[in-house]
């Protein structure tokens, strides 16, 4: 993106680029809608931009992220904790080998989590918009299995991309109204406290408190952090990974903040961790404007 020069959209004639597929930001928007099905025999439509649309239909038969479903039942909902623990271990070792200091390891873990966070925000909110019953019947669940989608698109790929899109039940069809966007810090923290925590760790987090000393500070308490439960380490806080997830969620929801972790052992919960969320000043200012 940084190297390419963006040309004005209309100065390039799309017909001179017949091989182009998808959106090209150096060319601007393309004009036509996908061609009508080949079987119905519209010859005129293949004139202007035929290259683009046939390429698109050929691509639908390939496995792609767009063929999968976002429905929670479309995939196995659980991951083996042991398998994840080993993966997480490798992640930490990698960060450790590449870093020179403890804070650098933590920063790397934080960055890894951040990219999960920005995705979780969209995914979980979108999922919770879908009405509960949608897609839970056995007939429609059959649609969600990847094989049936792939086989149907393979047979139809010669016809056109449009037919397959209509066959597939998209999750958006099951939405009567979208879940509200979270506009207040408390709302989005509640979302993390309940929805995100349940998705990640199978339970809600143990507490969500507002700091009494500072206005912009909130604390999420987890008495037994799941990811670091096997790790006995005093100097590196492996839960910075989770900090990264939280910060990714808040950042992409436009609540710029800084998340740190402090371990606060209690007699019953040796590994009790407190995630401290410090919002930046602009969040408070925005809140003050609306009030």
């Amino acid at each position: 993106m940084k190297q390419k020069i963006i040309n004005p959209s209309t100065s390039v004639n799309t017909a001179t680029h017949p091989g182009s597929t998808g959106y090209d930001y150096t060319m601007g928007p393309q004009q036509t809608l996908p061609d009508l099905p080949v079987s119905s025999g519209t010859i005129a439509a293949s004139g202007t931009n035929g290259g683009s649309s046939t390429a698109a239909s050929a691509h639908t038969s390939l496995p792609s992220v767009y063929n999968g479903s976002l429905h929670p039942h479309a995939h196995n909902q659980h991951v083996s904790l042991a398998a994840f623990a080993f993966l997480f271990q490798e992640l930490i070792s990698q960060a450790r080998n590449a870093s020179k200091s403890v804070s650098e390891i933590e920063m790397r873990l934080h960055r890894n989590g951040y990219h999960i966070g920005i995705r979780l925000l969209e995914l979980l909110n979108f999922r919770s918009s879908v009405s509960p019953g949608f897609g839970s019947t056995s007939s429609s669940r059959a649609f969600f299995s990847k094989t049936s989608i792939n086989s149907s698109s393979n047979t139809l790929a010669l016809n056109n991309a449009l037919t397959t899109t209509q066959d597939e039940p998209s999750l958006a069809q099951g939405i009567s109204h979208m879940k509200r966007r979270d506009l207040k810090p408390v709302e989005i923290l509640q979302f993390i406290h309940s929805t995100v925590w349940t998705y990640l760790f199978g339970r809600v987090s143990d507490d969500l408190v507002k700091s009494s000393e500072r206005d912009n500070e909130y604390m999420l308490v987890d008495s037994a952090p799941m990811l670091s439960q096997f790790i006995s380490s005093t100097n590196v806080q492996c839960d910075f990974f989770v900090c990264g997830i939280i910060e990714g969620i808040l950042d992409s929801a436009s609540f710029p903040c800084n998340v740190t972790i402090h371990s606060v052992p209690e007699p019953n919960f040796q590994q009790r961790a407190v995630f401290v969320v410090r919002f930046e000043q602009q969040v408070l200012e925005r809140e003050a404007l609306r009030a």
Binding site: A82, A85, I92, S93, S232, S233, Q270
Partner: peptide
């Protein structure tokens, strides 16, 4: 051992075990 030693990223295989959680 499988849980608290092998899943600890700071443990190097074949080396003496110094894992607080394993001890505990």
């Amino acid at each position: 051992y499988a849980d608290y030693v092998m899943k600890n990223p700071f443990y190097e295989p074949e080396m003496p075990i110094k894992c607080e959680l394993f001890d505990q």
